[in-house]
């Protein structure tokens, strides 16, 4: 259950400059790797490349190698990859299948496509809905939900596919704090079951809570990489357009004011 990118570069069709350069990244089994960075730093492109959609669906030119559980996926068609790697986009409205009249069918869409037996489709769908506490929406029309609700439905649709590898592009952008917490818990639980997960987020507090390692992108390159603790405590984070997590920011402000950070205690929760 590993996903490895070595020396990966990518350029969109018609673009003069590369969107990604020299990306080396290893996602081990059960590992959550966070991706931070300013807007336009390459986070979304990295998601498309890691999930195989760029260049397969998007076009453009790719360099370097991507190994899925040790196998080179270069020649794989998209449907073969999609059975192994799930991807969630920022805008939940575009992820609706358009052929589901109810949230239940929407969430079941992925496993149905994969040909999972009917009773398992049903149980996986219920489990995904329950994990995100949206069972009460099961009969609703997915088109008539708020942005936040659609984001939870889209996330449930990915969970129901039981992916071994999952790529998530700002999955909590439209969510309130409670929704963010539920999605964070769901990601942590999926990783605990062995999935490898790549997640981009502006909410570094969420990355601090669930990611073991974090990379920071700047101009399409990896500017920082390391354990979540080290990278998120880096004093240069703000210059890269990334807001440090609340605890790190508070500790630094305390140190700057001459107050021993230890007095703050270890209140991370």
């Amino acid at each position: 259950m590993s996903l490895q990118l070595t020396g990966v570069g990518y350029r969109y069709a018609g673009a003069t400059a590369a969107a990604l350069l020299d990306i080396d990244l290893l996602l081990g089994p059960g590992e959550v790797v966070g991706v931070a960075g300013a807007s336009e730093s390459g986070k979304t492109t990295l998601c498309l490349v890691a999930a195989g959609l760029a260049p397969r669906t998007v076009g453009g030119q790719i360099r370097g190698t991507i190994l899925l559980d040790g196998e080179d996926v270069d020649a794989w068609p998209m449907h073969r990859l999609s059975a192994r790697i799930g991807i969630g986009f920022q805008n939940p409205a575009t992820q609706l299948s358009q052929v589901a009249g109810t949230v239940f069918e929407e969430v079941a869409f992925g496993p149905m496509n994969l040909g999972v037996p009917r009773n398992e489709v049903v149980s996986h769908t219920w489990a995904a809905l329950e994990t995100l506490r949206i069972e009460n929406l099961a009969e609703r029309d997915p088109f008539r939900l708020s942005g936040g609700q659609q984001q939870l439905v889209a996330m449930a649709g990915l969970l129901a596919m039981r992916p071994e590898h999952l790529v998530l592009d700002e999955p909590t952008a439209q969510l309130d704090p409670e929704g963010t917490r539920l999605v964070g818990d769901a990601i942590a639980r999926l990783a605990a079951e062995g999935a490898s997960i790549l997640i981009t987020e502006q909410k570094t507090d969420l990355l601090a809570a669930i990611a073991a390692r974090v990379i920071v992108l700047d101009g399409g390159r990896i500017a920082r990489a390391g354990t979540a603790d080290d990278v998120l405590a880096d004093p240069g984070l703000a210059e890269l357009g990334v807001a440090p997590p609340a605890m790190h920011r508070l500790r630094r402000a305390a140190a700057d004011a001459g107050v021993a950070p230890g007095t703050l205690g270890s209140l991370d929760g």
Binding site: D176, P177, M247, V259
Partner: peptide, 30 residues
């Protein structure tokens, strides 16, 4: 389902009264 900001939670834990911002918490600590 809302949590007060971290500075508030720490201020409360340390018995410093209401400290909704980082600056308020640090001023109280000083």
């Amino acid at each position: 389902y809302l949590e007060p900001p971290l500075a508030s939670r720490i201020g409360g834990r340390l018995g410093l009264g209401s400290t909704p911002t980082d600056a308020a918490l640090i001023a109280r600590l000083r």
